[in-house]
Design a protein around this nucleic acid. Structure first.
Length: 199
DNA sequence: GTTCGGATCTTCT
DNA sequence: GAAGATCCGAACC
């Protein structure tokens, strides 16, 4: 697939719905940062009404981007090491976001391999910390709009059949583990972890 | 194949 | 002082 096959995502992607709807809608969308990235194959939804979210408990200096306008980035430091990228969604003030957990690498492979220090295509963007490293995301991207450089979002052409999307519990959390707010492209080999492990 | 610990730092108690 | 929306490599089946 080339960039010419894709359409501007702003026409079809809305960030004004509940985060679990936006998270599902984002599967198959191409995310680029300075022209580097790929197709989103895994996302998770978070919302200030449930205790796993960084926005739970209201706005704070660290999470203020989540309470800003939808369609912007929220970037946070994970375990003191990684930078993880979220898309702010829903109407302003609700503190909802979608964590970008994995991409199928399609653009700027050499740049991503260089940043990751790794050749294996499957492992370039298979996890939120890996996505951040491969795309060169850091603190300075927090709060930036997603419809302007360095970001670009490209939707799948509308005449293609919808992707099969799998749903499951979110990864790496200890609260609100019952919510099925992890979404992934069915059968993708670029997921951070398989869905329904061991059958 | 799996399990385990270390890295590293911000936030909260 | 502990926990956390993680990743990596070593050790061990």
């Amino acid at each position: 697939m080339t960039a010419a096959d894709l359409l501007p995502a702003a026409l079809t992607i809305g960030f004004d719905g509940p985060s679990h709807e936006v998270a599902r809608r984002l599967i198959g969308v191409t995310l680029l940062v300075d022209g580097v990235g790929g197709r989103i194959v895994e996302t998770e939804a978070y919302d200030s009404t449930e205790p796993a979210a960084h926005s739970f408990g209201g706005p704070r200096p660290r999470n203020v981007a989540l309470f800003g306008p939808p369609g912007h980035a929220y970037v946070y430091r994970s375990y003191g090491i990684h930078w993880c990228l979220n898309f702010v969604c829903r109407e302003s003030g609700h503190g909802a976001g979608v964590l970008i957990r994995a991409l199928e690498p399609t653009h700027g492979l050499a740049r991503m391999r260089e940043r990751r220090g790794l050749d294996d295509l499957r492992l370039l963007c298979a996890g939120p910390g890996r996505v951040g490293q491969a795309l060169g995301v850091d603190d300075s991207f927090n709060g930036k709009a997603l419809d302007a450089p360095p970001f670009a979002l490209l939707a799948r052409p509308g005449d293609r059949p919808p992707l099969a999307v799998e749903v499951g519990p979110r990864i790496g959390i200890s609260k609100a583990i019952e919510l099925p707010w992890r979404f992934g492209e069915k059968g993708s080999r670029f997921l951070s972890k398989p869905f329904r492990p061991a059958g």
